[in-house]
Design a protein around this nucleic acid. Structure first.
Length: 447
DNA sequence: TCTGGGGTCCTCGGGCCC
DNA sequence: TCTGGGGCCCGAGGACCC
């Protein structure tokens, strides 16, 4: 999908179409998640600090992401992909590999082009958004092709032309080559994909180590045998928060770690998983980051156990000077159900009794309570949907000083009017996003 | 200018066991 | 008995991706 988050926002907010839109964290330490092509003209791009984006494009619309909406659209698109083949490998909410041969939807260039064109039409019809398609003989090349196709295009890399096409490209084009590896290669006198191929396997391994060197050399020769894998098991679950202001108070740090542990367990349980290794992450005032981990005897999804482990790990970390980020994660996952764990705990308790030891029952399973929204519901977040008894559906354009500004419009309306209310206006409430494409009206006689 | 959140994979050193 | 080496796990860190 092209500039996915920003495009979805433009589709749902007519007044933003054709305008610079920036989606990301709006706090003092936020970064840009995605921005519209209109915003890119000003030099704004993903991962840029929001403060810098605001300097470059002061008149752009700044919105927080609405993952619920993006997830809905993503599911629609993934559904279309699965119509093409059972082998669909999602990379993120807005990107996926599809093995067209396995789906018997394409077997040569002509049929692949037809399938690609139809897919783009279907995506537009179902979601109202544009997607780009890259067609090639392997995953790496398909990805490069789709990057070239953006925005709103389709690119096919013809078999036999791959190496000539790759040769002049920057090494940074290859997946897995970021700033650090790019620098490494440049110091070795290598800046293009062709130069990787010329340097040879041994030199690449010498420069980058075995795994990375071999993989990169193969890719430079346009060799990529990785299959499209439909179902990938989750390997870890984690939550982290960056604080607007560094935390210095040790008591507060402990409290935050406990809250993060609870949130992490909530997510873990939501996915019906448990895990053995608890990881604490601390980013200090100077951006130095450290992790500490502890592996338990068996997997757990008990909030008490995870909290205690996280607290133990924290005690070994010096936080004087302040922390800007804290995180808690769980790895070494098993898809144990609650029943399994209870059975396990019971067995342990019985074993303990049998040994004559003091029976240590299973940790009481504390109720994990949904955290209340800070400052009640009265936090009107820029970009989120609202409904007003009198003016109907709209979205928050901004808030502050006890006022909230709303633009009243819907995906299929004309650009709407702006009105300002008190933040506690009784006629104003939060609302769910509306579908971007009006649903097909039911046939006559139905409903 | 000052750097998010959620992941994945790789490397390396140390300890343990055979 | 001492030493070496391989395999595995653990813990930490780094790079990369969207």
């Amino acid at each position: 999908m092209d500039a996915f988050f920003a495009s979805a926002e433009q589709a749902s907010k007519p007044s933003l179409r054709g305008k610079a839109v920036v989606v990301g964290g709006l706090g003092p330490r936020g970064v840009v998640s995605t921005c519209s092509y209109e915003a890119r003209v000003f030099g704004v791009h993903s991962a840029m600090p929001m403060a810098q984006a605001r300097r470059l494009a002061p008149n752009a619309a700044y919105l927080v992401p609405r993952f619920g909406l993006y997830r809905q659209i993503s599911e629609q698109v993934m559904g279309l992909l699965r119509e093409l083949s059972p082998l669909v490998e999602p990379l993120s909410l807005d990107e996926a590999f599809v093995d067209l041969e396995a789906g018997e939807t394409a077997w040569d260039e002509r049929s692949a082009l037809l399938a690609g064109r139809k897919l783009r039409d279907d995506i537009r019809a179902v979601t109202g958004l544009t997607g780009s398609v890259g067609l090639a003989a392997c995953k790496m090349l398909a990805k490069i092709a789709s990057e070239q196709a953006k925005p709103d295009g389709l690119v096919l890399i013809e078999p036999g032309t791959e190496r000539a096409l790759l040769a002049p490209m920057s090494v940074r084009t290859l997946p897995g080559v970021g700033p650090a590896t790019g620098d490494h290669l440049r110091r070795g006198g290598i800046t293009t994909v062709g130069e990787i191929a010329e340097a040879g396997e041994d030199e690449l391994v010498r420069l980058l180590g075995k795994a990375h060197g071999l993989a990169l050399y193969a890719m430079a020769l346009a060799r990529d045998e990785r299959p499209v894998v439909a179902e990938r098991d989750t390997k870890s679950v984690s939550v982290e928060d960056t604080y607007d202001v560094d935390i210095h108070d040790r008591v507060r740090v402990r409290m935050e770690v406990q809250r993060l542990a609870d949130r992490c367990v909530q997510r873990l349980r939501g996915a019906h998983l448990s895990g053995r290794t608890i990881v604490l992450k601390v980013r200090r005032y100077d951006f130095s980051t450290l992790t500490r981990s502890e592996t338990l005897r068996g997997p757990t999804d008990d909030p008490g156990v995870v909290r205690e482990a996280a607290a133990r790990l924290l005690e070994a970390v010096d936080t004087t000077g302040g922390v800007r980020l804290l995180g808690v994660g769980v790895t070494g996952l098993a898809d144990y159900t609650q029943e399994d764990l209870f059975a396990q705990a019971q067995a342990q308790a019985q074993a303990a009794v049998a040994e004559g030891a003091e029976a240590v029952g299973p940790e009481p399973v504390e109720e994990v309570v949904e955290e209340p929204e800070p400052a009640a519901e009265r936090q009107w977040r820029a970009g989120h949907d609202v409904r007003h008894v009198e003016f109907g559906h709209g979205w928050v354009q901004g808030s502050g000083l006890g006022r909230v500004t709303v633009r009243f419009e819907t995906p299929d309306s004309l650009p709407g009017r702006v009105k300002t209310f008190r933040v506690d206006d009784p006629g104003l409430e939060r609302a769910e996003p509306l579908p971007l494409v009006a649903r097909v009206p039911p046939a006559v006689g139905e409903g």
